[in-house]
Simulated assay, not measured.
Amino acid sequence: MNFLSNLQKKRNKKLFDNVAKGVRECKPVYAKKESDVVIISQVYHDALDMSLLALKSFVTHFGDCDIEVLDDGSLTDEDKSIIKSQLQGVRITNMSDVDTGSCPKGNCWERLVRILQLCQSRYVIQVDTDTLTIAAIPEIVAAVKQQRAFTIGNPIFNSPVNIDYISHIASQWKGNHIQVEIERNLSRVSLQGLKEYCRGCAAFAGFPIKPNSFAELECFSQQMQALLGKEKWNQWGSEQAASNVMISLYSEKDILPWPKYTNYGFPSQGNDGAPETFLGKCSVLHFIGSHRFTTRCYEYLANNLLENLLRKAS
Rank of each mutant, 00 (worst) to 15 (best):
A136F: 04
C65W: 07
S102N: 10
C26M: 14
K27H: 15
A20V: 10
S243P: 01
I92N: 02
C297T: 14
P267L: 01
D72F: 02
I152G: 00
Q179K: 05
G206Y: 08
I288Q: 10
D71F: 04
P155S: 02
E239T: 08
N12K: 12
H286T: 06
V43F: 03
D97S: 15
F214Q: 04
H177S: 14
L301E: 00
R114D: 00
L256N: 10
E196T: 09
S5T: 12
L52N: 09
R311T: 15
C65H: 05
L309G: 06
R188C: 02
N94T: 11
L309D: 15
R296Y: 08
V180L: 14
E239R: 06
G265Y: 10
S238G: 11
G89N: 11
H286S: 03
Y30W: 10
H45T: 11
G273T: 09
A31D: 01
L191C: 03
E299S: 14
V189A: 07
I182R: 02
V161F: 15
V38A: 07
Y250W: 13
L52D: 03
E139I: 01
Q192P: 05
A302G: 07
N158F: 13
T151L: 10
L15N: 15
V189T: 05
K32C: 11
R199I: 13
R188I: 00
L285W: 03
F293P: 05
I209M: 05
S187C: 12
D17Q: 14
G193K: 04
L285V: 13
G289F: 05
N263E: 07
D77Y: 12
S74N: 12
L4D: 04
R292D: 13
K230W: 04
I288R: 08
Y44W: 14
V19C: 12
P160S: 09
R184C: 02
I140E: 02
H291C: 13
G193R: 07
D36P: 01
I40G: 06
K9C: 12
K230M: 05
Y123D: 07
W258M: 02
K10T: 15
S167V: 09
L15E: 15
H45Q: 11
F157K: 01
M1F: 07
F266G: 02
S314N: 14
M1I: 11
M1Y: 04
P208M: 06
K260W: 00
S238L: 07
T60E: 15
K312D: 04
F16S: 05
L132A: 10
Q269E: 11
F220T: 04
L55E: 10
N158K: 14
D272M: 06
V90T: 06
I137D: 12
Q192A: 14
D164K: 03
D128M: 05
I134V: 09
S187D: 11
E239L: 09
A135R: 09
Y123R: 01
P211R: 14
S187I: 02
E110Y: 08
L116A: 13
C108A: 13
A203L: 06
C103N: 09
T277H: 10
V90F: 06
T294H: 07
S243R: 00
C108S: 12
Q179R: 05
C198A: 13
G63W: 08
L75F: 08
S290Q: 14
C26D: 15
P138H: 04
D46P: 01
E231V: 12
P211M: 13
S159Q: 14
R184S: 10
S5V: 07
I166N: 03
V124T: 05
G193P: 07
E299I: 13
I137S: 10
G280H: 12
